[in-house]
Amino acid sequence: MRKKISFVILSSSGAPAKQICTSKASIRLFGAAIIAVFTIVGYIVYDYYNLRETTSHLQNREVYISSQLEEIHHQRKQIQEFANEINSLKTKLLALNDFEKKIRIIANIEKSNESENMFGVGGSVPEDLDAQLPLKEKHNSLMRDMHEQVEQLSHASANQQEGFHSLLQSLEDQQNLLASTPAIRPVSRGVKSWITSRFGYRKSPFTGKREFHKAYDISARLGTPILATADGVITFAGKKGLLGYTIIVDHGHGMKTRYAHCQKKFLKKRGDKVKRWEPIALMGNTGRSTGPHVHYQVFINGMPANPELYILN
Rank of each mutant, 00 (worst) to 15 (best):
Lys102Asp: 05
Gln75Lys: 15
Asn84Met: 05
Arg288Asp: 08
Glu85Val: 05
Thr257Pro: 11
Val63Phe: 10
Ser157Arg: 09
Ile311Gln: 12
Ala36Ser: 07
Pro16Gly: 03
His293Ser: 13
Ala25Glu: 15
Ala107Phe: 08
Ile9Ser: 08
Pro307Cys: 05
Ile5Leu: 13
Ser13Tyr: 08
Phe99Glu: 04
Val41Trp: 12
Ala17Ile: 01
Asn50Gly: 11
Thr181Leu: 01
Lys18Val: 07
Gln149Val: 00
Gly42Tyr: 09
Glu116Ile: 04
His295Tyr: 04
Thr54His: 11
Ser11Arg: 09
Gly287Lys: 09
Ile280Thr: 03
Pro126Asn: 13
His147Val: 01
Glu100Met: 00
Arg276Lys: 14
Gly232Tyr: 11
Ser11Val: 07
Val150Gly: 02
Gly241Asn: 15
Leu93Phe: 15
Ile247Phe: 14
Gly123Ser: 01
His293Val: 15
Ile226Leu: 04
Tyr296Met: 13
His73Leu: 11
Leu93Ala: 15
Gly31Met: 09
Cys21Ser: 14
Ala260Asn: 07
Leu243Val: 06
Lys265Ala: 07
Gln132Arg: 06
Met1Cys: 07
Lys3Pro: 06
Ser170Thr: 01
Ala25Pro: 05
Asn306Lys: 02
Tyr46Ala: 10
Tyr64Ile: 15
Lys240Trp: 10
Val187Ser: 07
Ser26Lys: 12
Asp173Pro: 07
Ile9Ala: 14
Thr181Lys: 00
Lys136Trp: 12
Arg198Ser: 11
Arg144Ile: 02
Phe212Leu: 13
Val298Thr: 02
Asp173Ser: 12
Gln132Lys: 11
Asn313Ser: 12
Lys214Val: 00
Ile311Leu: 07
Asp128Tyr: 15
Ile105Asp: 12
Val37Met: 03
Gly163Leu: 01
Val294Met: 15
Leu29Trp: 05
Gln160Lys: 02
Ile44Leu: 15
Asn50Pro: 01
Gly271Tyr: 07
Lys269Gln: 12
Val37Trp: 02
Tyr64Ala: 14
Glu53Tyr: 09
Ile106Glu: 11
Ser67Thr: 14
Ile106Pro: 02
Ile34Glu: 07
Met146Phe: 06
Asn306Cys: 01
Ile72Pro: 00
Gly122Met: 04
Asn87Arg: 10
Ala220Val: 08
Lys264His: 11
Met303Glu: 00
Leu93Lys: 05
Pro292Tyr: 14
His139Arg: 13
His253Met: 00
His57Pro: 01
Asn306Glu: 02
Gly271Arg: 07
Asp217Lys: 03
Pro225Thr: 03
Thr196Arg: 06
Thr286Glu: 05
His155Ser: 08
Thr54Gly: 08
Pro182Gln: 09
Lys264Phe: 04
Phe30Arg: 05
Phe212Pro: 00
Tyr48Ile: 08
Ser180Ala: 13
Leu93Gln: 12
Arg288Ala: 08
Arg202Trp: 02
Gln132Val: 03
Ile40Gln: 04
Glu162Ala: 12
Lys268Asn: 11
Ile247Met: 13
Ile226Asn: 04
Glu62Ala: 14
Ala179Tyr: 04
Glu70Cys: 08
Pro205Ser: 06
Asn140Arg: 06
Leu93His: 09
Ala33Ser: 06
Lys264Gln: 08
Gly241Gln: 13
Leu243Thr: 08
Asn313Cys: 08
Ser197Trp: 04
Glu81Phe: 09
Phe82Gln: 05
Ile195Cys: 06
Leu135Cys: 11
Ser170Val: 01
Arg52Lys: 12
Lys273Ala: 03
Gln149Thr: 01
